[in-house]
Design a protein around this nucleic acid. Structure first.
Lengths: 144, 144
DNA sequence: TAGCAATTATTAGTGTGACAACTAATTTAA
DNA sequence: TTAAATTAGTTGTCACACTAATAATTGCTA
């Protein structure tokens, strides 16, 4: 194994992830979507499966609970979502979209998909398979 | 094109990049390396090619200049590097490792490589080729 | 060569990520 | 049945990413 060569992967991975995020964020800004991509990712999950507790939402989004709390605070301040009490567990809170939040997701979805697709120019269906397989293998290798 | 399916790539990319970073950072912490991985990435570049200006270092590391300034501030505070005036251009500053910084890079290098390699268990030389090709294609697709 | 545009680095502001510590509520186990 | 452990969520702190704005310097050009 050529460790020196392989070790470069983290640089490539990190800079690509940052550029993907930055590209989407810039597009959001130019189109005056008025939310960040991380806020978008939470709204989109809620759109398909609300209400959800913080914990469920954290798992589904891959974010930790403190980060999620802060993002939820922001989308609530923007009146796109709201916290409601959990019917059984008083420790728990459920989050659900407001009418305004649902409208936002419905409106923005097609544009977001187009923004996301730009990354896949010059790449094939097969590449997509490699991509998900390799990245998920790395993800699982580092699971402990 | 199945936009809905392809759009998932950004989630996978982001969470894998975060886990790689977090895994390395946790290992650094457990081994009391006393630096972050981003600080490490800057030290390592300097080790092979110092002195360098902020601008060159920003390009080489793939970080923007404000971020780089802060990281350099921190490694200087830790006395691992120092700023020196550019001989020709008074706007410019060069950064170079201190003796302590060079020692740190030399000492930590083998351990860092081992930490990095864990991600590649169950993956092949060919996978590494796909990985770099696909990620760099995405990176370039979003270039402007 | 005077004026202005471009370049280098920094600062300020906002958002996110990881970790630790904390409160409140619930579950478990003595 | 109460004390201890666990769980849900929040807050605080530090580090990093990105944008915009600024200061100092350099270089072009009219």
């Amino acid at each position: 194994m050529l460790k020196e060569k392989y070790s470069q992967y983290s640089f490539i991975l990190d800079r690509t992830a940052r550029r993907v995020k930055q590209y989407a964020q810039t597009s959001f800004l130019q189109n005056a979507f008025d939310i960040t991509i991380d806020q978008w990712s939470i709204l989109k999950i809620l759109f398909h499966a609300d209400p959800m507790t913080h914990k469920e939402l954290a798992e589904k989004s891959g974010k930790d609970q403190p980060t999620l709390t802060r993002i939820v605070d922001i989308i609530i301040k923007k009146q796109l979502a709201e916290r409601i009490e959990h019917p059984q567990d008083r420790r728990s809170l459920q989050i659900r979209l407001t009418a305004s939040g649902e409208k936002k997701v419905a409106q923005l979805s097609p544009a977001v998909k187009n923004i996301r697709m730009k990354a896949w120019e010059n790449l094939s269906e097969e590449d997509f398979g490699h991509f998900t397989r390799i990245l998920n293998t790395i993800y699982n290798n580092l699971d402990q």
